[in-house]
């Protein structure tokens, strides 16, 4: 592997280890763990004016239902 690619891998590995430190950065083995982590991160990052956030926080009658 080229040295610049090794640097990119190291950077990605460090990020992965921050996301799942208990498994040395390995992917979440449980889908619900990945799902909840994704939702948490999205809610943390999404601006208040984002349409998706406004729908989530809107009146119950406008929230999506299955």
């Amino acid at each position: 592997m080229r040295s610049e690619d090794q640097e990119r891998v190291a950077r990605a590995r460090a990020a992965a280890e921050r996301i799942n430190p208990h498994a040395n950065g390995a992917p979440f083995t449980l889908a619900n763990k990945a799902e909840s982590a994704f939702v948490d991160e999205a809610l943390w990052l999404m601006p208040a004016a984002a349409p998706m956030r406004r729908r989530l926080e809107g009146p119950a009658s406008t929230r999506p239902t299955r």
Partner: peptide, 16 residues
């Protein structure tokens, strides 16, 4: 060889 979900991939891409 193990589950590697797009959700997990996206979390790491976001961090990087």
């Amino acid at each position: 060889v193990q589950a590697v979900s797009v959700a997990w991939h996206s979390l790491v891409v976001s961090a990087v």
